[in-house]
């Protein structure tokens, strides 16, 4: 168990200056504030840079990393985590520019992580918050995936649940895990980078879901990722997601893993009667993912 608690928050943003302000407000209200707040800007054009620099005059913890172009969420978290690791933080708290943590969200994550290790001897690879939508309901797209033995320590109802993966919305990652497993895959650009990364971290030991740590995710609608809900407007994201997950399934489970994934996608689209012109694009993405093997950068 480490007694070092120096935490760097990493917020990736793109053209959401107003929401980012609320995130910084929420970080400023934290009971346990991060020592450093990295705002990773995917080359926003809405004045985010000026806003962050002005805000930095009141919040000395802010570090502003402007990327040369829009590298997507994956590129942003990759760059942010790399920079924060290089500067020596002991924990990394990753989150979106539209997710507002409750004042004790970070403290609970830290306490749960160190407490779990003290009680059970295992080092969780990450700790994630309960992500809620704006109406207080569970945010569908940020639901963590439980580990096969998720209730192992759930004896009295208070211990955290073991999870295999989660999203990059309020997740606390210890330094040792980054040192051992490297950085998120920047080439994923968007979608599935978080699941791939936290799954990779889980190889050491699963993460823990900490429902007492709460975050409000301010997104337009509370929808999960289901191919039956595929729409033209979402297609570009689904295509990245499909390519990335297909690549991951192929890496982890070989051809069989890829085939199983393709079949699930096919069933979801077929059952919901998704138009063929959209389905074709998704199948093409799966094929692209089969040959897509981005490298993992170590620190």
């Amino acid at each position: 168990m480490s007694v070092l608690t120096g935490t760097a928050a990493i917020i990736v943003t793109f053209n959401r200056a107003a929401k980012l302000t609320k995130v910084l407000d929420a970080l400023d209200r934290q009971v346990v504030r991060p020592e450093v707040i990295w705002v990773v800007d995917n080359a926003s054009t809405d004045g985010t840079g000026d806003l962050v620099l002005a805000r930095a005059r009141q919040m000395p913890a802010i570090r502003y990393l402007r990327l040369p172009g829009n590298l997507g969420g994956a590129g942003g978290f990759h760059a942010g985590l790399k920079a924060a690791y290089a500067q020596g933080a002991n924990y990394f708290w990753l989150s979106d520019d539209d997710a507002y943590p409750e004042p004790d969200a970070l403290r609970v994550l830290q306490e749960e992580m160190t407490g779990f290790q003290a009680r059970h001897g295992w080092r969780p690879a990450f700790a994630c918050s309960r992500v809620e939508w704006t109406d207080g309901s569970l945010c569908e797209m940020n639901t963590p995936r439980p580990a096969w033995d998720w209730p192992r320590f759930l004896c009295d109802g208070s211990a955290p649940v073991l999870v295999e993966s989660c999203s990059f919305v309020s997740v606390l990652i210890p330094r040792w895990a980054v040192k051992e497993h490297g950085l998120p895959i920047a080439d994923y650009f968007i979608w599935f980078d978080d699941v791939e990364y936290t799954s990779r971290l889980s190889r050491s030991y699963p993460g823990i879901f900490c429902p007492r740590s709460r975050v409000v995710h301010d997104i337009a609608s509370n929808r999960g990722v289901h191919f039956g809900q595929l729409r033209e407007s979402d297609l570009w994201k689904y295509r990245y997601g499909t390519r990335n997950e297909a690549s991951f399934r192929r890496r982890e489970g070989g051809i069989a893993g890829l085939a199983g994934y393709a079949f699930r996608v096919h069933r979801q689209m077929k059952d919901a009667d998704v138009p063929w012109r959209l389905r074709r694009r998704i199948y093409a993405s799966i094929l692209r993912g089969a040959g897509f093997r981005p490298g993992i950068e170590r620190v």
């Binding site: 707040i37 990295w38 620099l53 930095a56 000395p60 913890a61 802010i62 570090r63 502003y64 990393l65």
Partner: peptide, 22 residues
């Protein structure tokens, strides 16, 4: 704290070292 005498240096520290808050 990094005290600087010009905006040129602000940009240098910001672009190279991302030291906005200091």
């Amino acid at each position: 704290t990094h005290h600087v005498i010009s905006n040129d240096l602000i940009r240098f520290y910001q672009d190279r070292f991302h030291a906005a808050g200091k």
